[in-house]
């Protein structure tokens, strides 16, 4: 009797897991307008950055920022305006958040910095008041919650965003923290960080 119940429970569990995988595979209709620039799995294209693996919270917040004008992009601003309705926005954000795979995880202290960018990421630079990027973006730049995943993001996109923070062209970061830190980065840091983060797979 007990084994029958156990078997039944396992079957239900199995069906549940299969359902979950299927739900991730299947893109919601609302996400289709995003594919041209961001790719069907949010992997990014030459037209738009990677969305795969960004948190739902972060994706939703960026749509808000494009609507409010804290971020600005000739293509993305009008697209975002079509997603003012949370009912439309949520499934899109959830879908892209569930894409991609975790990189190999390195926690702070595990790596001897192999490059200046890796040193900035895991150690920061106390002489310039730059905390380790790790403090908010986490192991191997996986991000979470309000902090974007940077692992595997396009190098040019990351560099362009850091420059936008520096110039005050991008806003809306929690507590203005990213803008404050970006202003302390040199042009070389910004290029190097873009390349370093893009290479984390």
């Amino acid at each position: 009797m007990r084994s029958v119940r156990m078997a039944a429970a396992l079957m239900v569990l199995d069906a549940g897991l299969a359902g979950m995988v299927w739900a991730q595979e299947q893109a919601p209709r609302e996400a289709q307008p995003c594919f041209a620039c961001h790719g069907e799995r949010g992997q990014g294209t030459t037209q738009g950055p990677m969305l795969a693996g960004l948190s739902t919270q972060y994706i939703e917040a960026q749509i808000d920022h494009f609507i409010s004008g804290q971020r600005s992009n000739p293509l993305m601003t009008p697209m975002a305006q079509a997603y003012t309705d949370l009912q439309l926005r949520r499934p899109v954000a959830t879908y892209f958040a569930s894409q991609g795979k975790l990189p190999e995880l390195h926690v702070r202290g595990q790596l001897q910095a192999g490059s200046a960018a890796e040193r900035l990421y895991y150690q920061g630079d106390i002489t310039r008041g730059i905390p380790a990027c790790y403090s908010c973006h986490g192991p191997s730049a996986v991000g979470g919650g309000p902090f974007p995943r940077l692992a595997g993001q396009q190098a040019d996109y990351v560099s362009a965003q850091l420059l936008a923070w520096q110039k005050g062209e991008r806003k809306g970061d929690p507590g203005n923290m990213m803008a404050a830190i970006a202003k302390r980065l040199s042009a070389e840091d910004i290029q190097a960080l873009g390349r370093y983060l893009a290479a984390i797979q």
């Binding site: 790790y134 192991p139 996986v142 979470g144 919650g145 929690p174």
Partner: peptide, 19 residues
């Protein structure tokens, strides 16, 4: 709260405590 959470719980990323 943005970093430390509504309940002061901090934040983990990929199951690693970060904040």
């Amino acid at each position: 709260a943005v970093c430390h959470g509504d309940q002061g719980q901090g934040r983990e990323m990929a199951d690693v405590p970060v904040l």
